[in-house]
């Protein structure tokens, strides 16, 4: 994924202003700026979900409202309308009203799609963020330990990572989820019960660990043999200090580049798991579960499924754009070759 020409030691970590030119290059990248603005807007909107539901839409997006009535342009309408088309037996939720309540219409339970979309985004973003942090923390730690200490530690960890790496992502996530959805997760003192949105976050984070650990391990292995680390060992610097001061700063750019890309992948995995009904559990919603709900209404009220998909696409796209810009900004040589 990243090409490390000449090894990581080529850029000294403590040169004054390693990050300043990176920031400058990022700011000069108009595509990256647009992506950042879009992402921030989406995050802000989703964080404001409770405000939107309470103040603007005035609805509870988690309670079904099958027999409710609302007023649109002065006329009273049922949230779930009887369908006169065909045999006249079906019922159709109200479509987009263009008004504050039910802006994007209702789903099959008579719930406000716009409000659910914002709440769903909150769950999706939260899960992807927690999963990414977990990947980074666990994967980074495993990679550093395996790469630095080598020997038996490395052999055991690397074989374990090999197996996890070779395990198809969806199959591993499905196996973990199907067991966890039934009974929650019990890891010694740590218990996450089945309704908790952190459960999918935990599973997705775990599945992604090798994607972080393997590149970090390779890089730390090279660092371990570099002159400045050998010198630090030689003058008797304690190992934790070497790891913290000499090794970690040198892998920080590798880790940083992975953050937006991993977050993008995690968003897609979360939505897939929720779509398969083994991610976020009802009554909570995420973008994936809303698409799943909307599929039943696809031909009558397509917006229910279309809107969350668009939201996922825009979020993941802006994350990918940011990731790419970050990679180019951290390694201008690469950017020169790319453009």
């Amino acid at each position: 994924m990243t090409h490390l020409v000449g090894g990581p030691a080529a850029t000294p970590a403590y040169a004054p202003g390693l990050w300043r030119p990176v920031l400058r290059r990022l700011r000069a990248d108009r595509g990256a700026l647009a992506a950042a603005v879009l992402l921030l807007a989406i995050v802000a909107l989703c964080l404001a979900a409770p405000l939107y539901a309470a103040r603007i839409a005035q609805t509870d997006p988690f309670r079904s409202n099958i027999s409710g009535q609302i007023t649109v342009n002065g006329a009273a309408r049922a949230v779930i309308e009887d369908n006169a088309e065909g045999l006249g037996l079906g019922q159709t939720p109200i479509g987009p009203t263009g008004a504050a309540s039910y802006l994007l219409g209702a789903d099959s339970q008579g719930r406000d799609v716009a409000a659910r979309l914002l709440y769903g985004g909150r769950a999706s973003l939260l899960i992807a963020t927690v999963a990414t942090l977990l990947c980074m923390g666990l994967g980074g730690a495993l990679g550093v330990v395996a790469g630095y200490f080598g020997g038996v530690v490395d052999a055991v960890l690397s074989r374990l990572l090999d197996v996890l790496w070779a395990f198809p992502v969806y199959l591993l996530a499905i196996s973990l989820s199907i067991v966890a959805v039934g009974s929650g997760l019990h890891l010694g003192p740590l218990v996450i019960d089945s309704g908790n949105p952190l459960l999918p976050a935990f599973i997705i984070g775990l599945v992604g660990v090798p994607y972080v650990a393997r590149p970090v391990r390779a890089q730390v292995q090279a660092l371990r043999r570099s002159d400045f680390v050998l010198a630090a060992i030689g003058i008797g610097v304690p190992t934790p200090r070497i790891l913290l001061v000499d090794v970690l700063p040198n892998v920080s750019s590798t880790l940083l580049v992975l953050v937006p890309l991993l977050m993008a992948i995690n968003m897609l995995t979360e939505s897939a798991l929720s779509f398969l009904s083994i991610g976020v559990q009802a009554p909570a919603a995420s973008w994936g579960t809303i698409i799943q709900d909307g599929l039943a209404l696809l031909y009558t009220r397509p917006l229910v499924a279309l809107a969350p998909g668009l939201a996922i696409m825009l979020t993941v796209l802006s994350l990918n754009l940011l990731g790419e810009a970050l990679r180019d900004a951290l390694d201008p040589r690469l950017a020169g070759r790319r453009s």
């Binding site: 897939a272 599929l295 397509p302 696409m313 796209l317």
Partner: peptide, 22 residues
């Protein structure tokens, strides 16, 4: 290409169904 890798595949499938089946 970046848009292509950013779409959930099952959602794209739903859009294709919406257009071609309905």
């Amino acid at each position: 290409g970046l848009v292509g890798v950013s779409m959930p595949v099952y959602w794209l499938g739903a859009v294709v169904n919406l257009v071609t089946q309905s």
